[in-house]
Design a protein around this nucleic acid. Sequence first.
DNA 1: CAGTGGTCTAGACCACAAG
DNA 2: TTGTGGTCTAGACCACTGG
Lengths: 232, 232
Amino acid sequence: MAGAPRSWQAVEAEVLRRIRSRDWAPGDLIPGEVELAAELGCARSTVNRALRQLAAAGYLERRRKAGTRVALNPVRMATLRIPVIAEEVASRGARYDHALLRRETGVPPLLVRSRLRLDPGRKLLHVVALHLADGAPYAFEDRWVDPETVPEFAALDLTRQSANAWLVRNVPYTSGTLALSAEPADRESAEALGCDPGAALFVLERTTWKEARPITWVRLAYPPGHRLTTEL
Amino acid sequence: MAGAPRSWQAVEAEVLRRIRSRDWAPGDLIPGEVELAAELGCARSTVNRALRQLAAAGYLERRRKAGTRVALNPVRMATLRIPVIAEEVASRGARYDHALLRRETGVPPLLVRSRLRLDPGRKLLHVVALHLADGAPYAFEDRWVDPETVPEFAALDLTRQSANAWLVRNVPYTSGTLALSAEPADRESAEALGCDPGAALFVLERTTWKEARPITWVRLAYPPGHRLTTEL
DNA sequence: CAGTGGTCTAGACCACAAG
DNA sequence: TTGTGGTCTAGACCACTGG
C-alpha cells in the first residue's frame, strides 16, 4: 500500500519513523509480520529481520502469539568497545609502552577472592603494571591470574607483551563480568599515574571465566580526565 | 561431514568452538559460507546468520570477496543497559523519588555550549534535580534543554515526573553521545549527594539530538560506590 | 487450540573488492 | 573479472503462549 521499502533497512527505517511520529505509540500492538509484509510489498522474512533488529535495539517487544508492541520504555542499549589497551592507545595516535611494576605469587585480598569465588588460601599470580601513552601514564593495572586455569602464565615474559594482550589471544573466556566505577586513588595508583592520592580515578574491573574456572580478575584505573565514550 | 548442527545457534557454537580450540587461529581464513553449509549440512543462509552474529560480536571479520577471518584482536563489545533512573532504582527493589532543586533559564557554560554546538548567547532551560532511592541520594542531575527543539518543556510539571522520563517518552532522539568518567565532587554535588567535596563521583554524560537540532545535555553524577555492571 | 513469531530451506540476484 | 558475502523470496514447519 504505502511507498516501497524493499530492503530490511528500509523496513526498519519505516517502522522507526512510525514509532517516532507516534503513529504507533508506546504500548501499541503493531500489525503482524504477514500484514506488514503485504503492506510494504516485501517478503515476511524481510519484515522479520527488521523487526528483530528493532526488538534487539529495545524499540519493540515481541512475544509469540501476543504479537509485537512498541516498547513502553525504550531501554537504551549502549555498546562500549573494550579494546586491548595497546590498541586503544594506538587508535589515539600515541605510542604505546608498558612497564611491569611487580610480579609475585600470593593470596589475593578478600575482594578478589570473592569475585573469583576462590577457596581461602588459594595462591594466585599477581601482576602490577603501568600502561603508557607517549610516555605518559595511561592506565594502572592490578591483576590476579589463576595458575590452575592458565599454567603457562607463570613462565611468560611480560616485558615484551602485556598480560592482557597475551590472555586475550591465548585464553579465550567463555563468560565474564565488567564493572565501571569511580574510585579515589590510593597511594600506589596515585604515584604510578602521577596524580594526587584521593583523585577521582575511572576504574574498569573485569572478571573472566573459562567455563567454571576463573581465569583472571583485573582492575584498570585511569587518571583523572579519562572518558569512555560511545555513540547512541 | 561433521556432526549435525541444524540451527544457526548450533552453527554459531560449532564455529566458536573451533575458534576457541585454535582449530581456526586468529588471522586464519575460514571456509566460505557455501563450503561450511555443505560440511555442516544446512542451508547457506543458516551459516550466514551464525557468521554474521559472530562478526557482530567481534569474533570474526568479514569482507566481500576476501572471505571471513578469525579476528586478530577480539574487540570486546560490552553492551550497557541505560535505563530511565526511576526503573533503575525500581529494579534494585527500592522506592524511587526525585526532588527538583533548581529550574531556570540562562546561558549554559562553555562546556555545555560546545557539546551542543550552540551559538554563543543562546539561552537554554536549566534543571537541577536529585534522584532518590528509598530516600537516599541516588544520582545528581544537571540538565540543559533546548527550548527551540522542545518548546513544551518549559511548561512541564517536573515535580510529578522527572525530566528524563518525559523526554524519553516524548522526544525520541535520532542520535546521541554517551560518555562515562570519574570526577571529583564539586560543592553542590557533594551537598546533594551527601558526600565530601572532592569525593570520586561516577559521571554519565549524555547529549542527544533530533536530527540536526540539539535536544538536551545531561550530566548524572553518582555517589561513591556506584557501579555500572554488565555481562560479557 | 489457534495465532504469532522463530527459523530453515533452496534458489536467485546483487554489491563489493581482490587480483 | 570473478569470487565472496549480503540480501530477498516464497514456502514450509515449528515453538511458544494467549485465550
